[in-house]
């Protein structure tokens, strides 16, 4: 049995339509027009123990709705979902004791309390035995470098420090499943890297299953072997990064440093042929975007090196942002 099993999960919200203007607002008081919003329209997936899954999609696609249902704080309209054999929203309290949740935008800690007191209160809330608590606390303090922060009230922490404290707080009871909702939002580069390192360690060394939602594709590339893309309440893609790329055009970029500066016209004429999408030259460097399905990278490289003096070259994947933006565009979603 998989750790998380989700079948045909559906969620319909009934929302009141807003009318324009003050008069409209008053009319809305007595005569409400309701509209159904299908946040989830039949979602299926399984997640095995020890997986690290990236769950992405544009705003409003159903990411948060799914996470809230999995965490037991939202009841779906239809479908089934079990986590370690429990139905989250029916067994809310038992389920809550077994999972950890971190919302990047919202702290789980007590604003006025020093970090350590929040931890000790959570120990009581989660009924963590003293010895286990001491072990977990010390490990988190070490991994997340919380030592100097323990006596600081939460309201005085920087965002990066607070996120580290929040991560520790979510793991003190030793959950085997962790939901991270945009954990790197607003963090500076160093804090993001530290966060990723920690999540990787947690997943690889402690075998904690992690479900991560994010808008930061670097998080995904750095961490996830598996990606689920949701759009309009359905799972569009469920697979590895390679699969995601394959689905939206197999684009690669060949970057060549020539020994002498060449002109764009010569290069374009010489390389005329199938599979080329975009060629740009700046000084001695050319960026050649091509479709790896139409022309094999090795063949293109052979063609370039046979005609020009090449100093250096390499092939790169386009940034995954582009891939995902293409995918959202394909499904008529997204803000862009």
């Amino acid at each position: 049995m998989s750790q998380i099993e989700v079948q045909n999960l559906a969620k319909v919200f009934r929302v009141a339509e807003r009318r324009a203007g003050l008069a409209g607002a008053f009319r809305g008081l007595v005569d409400r027009r309701m509209r159904d919003v299908h946040a989830l329209a039949g979602v299926d997936f399984d997640i095995e123990r020890g997986e690290l899954v990236g769950y992405i999609g544009p705003n409003g696609a159903g990411k948060s709705t799914t996470i809230k249902i999995l965490a037991g704080i939202l009841t779906p309209t239809g479908g089934t979902c079990t986590v370690d054999g429990l139905t989250p929203w029916r067994d809310r309290r038992r389920h809550a004791a077994r999972i950890g949740v971190v919302f990047g935008q919202r702290t789980q800690l007590w604003w006025d309390l020093p970090v350590i007191e929040s931890f000790e209160l959570l120990q009581r809330v989660y009924r963590v035995p003293e010895a286990l608590f001491a072990t977990n606390r010390d490990r988190m303090v070490e991994l997340l470098r919380l030592g100097p922060l323990l006596d600081t009230p939460v309201r005085q922490l920087s965002l990066g420090q607070r996120m580290r404290a929040d991560l520790a707080a979510a793991l003190l009871h030793g959950p085997k499943l962790l939901f991270l909702d945009e954990p790197t939002i607003g963090l500076d580069a160093a804090a993001k890297l530290a966060m990723r390192d920690f999540v990787r360690t947690l997943n690889r060394e402690e075998g904690v299953t992690v479900v991560l939602t994010t808008h930061d594709m670097d998080d995904i590339e750095a961490l996830c072997e598996r990606i689920m893309v949701i759009g309009q309440g359905r799972i569009l893609i469920d697979g590895g990064i390679d699969e995601l790329r394959r689905r939206v055009g197999n684009e690669r970029v060949l970057i060549v440093d020539f020994e002498e500066g060449g002109s764009l016209e010569v290069l374009a004429r010489e390389l005329d042929g199938a599979g080329l999408r975009d060629v740009r030259v700046t000084g001695k460097r050319a960026r050649i975007a091509f479709d790896a399905g139409a022309i094999a990278p090795a063949a293109l490289i052979a063609r370039v090196t046979s005609r020009f003096g090449v100093h250096d070259l390499f092939v790169e994947h386009p940034p995954i942002e582009h891939t995902v933006a293409d995918l959202y565009a394909e499904h008529g979603e997204g803000d862009a």
Partner: peptide, 17 residues
Amino acid sequence: TGDFDRLLLRPRPTALQ
């Protein structure tokens, strides 16, 4: 504020919290 979610995420009765 939606902070009630935070109480629902914990393994205790919401009224107690």
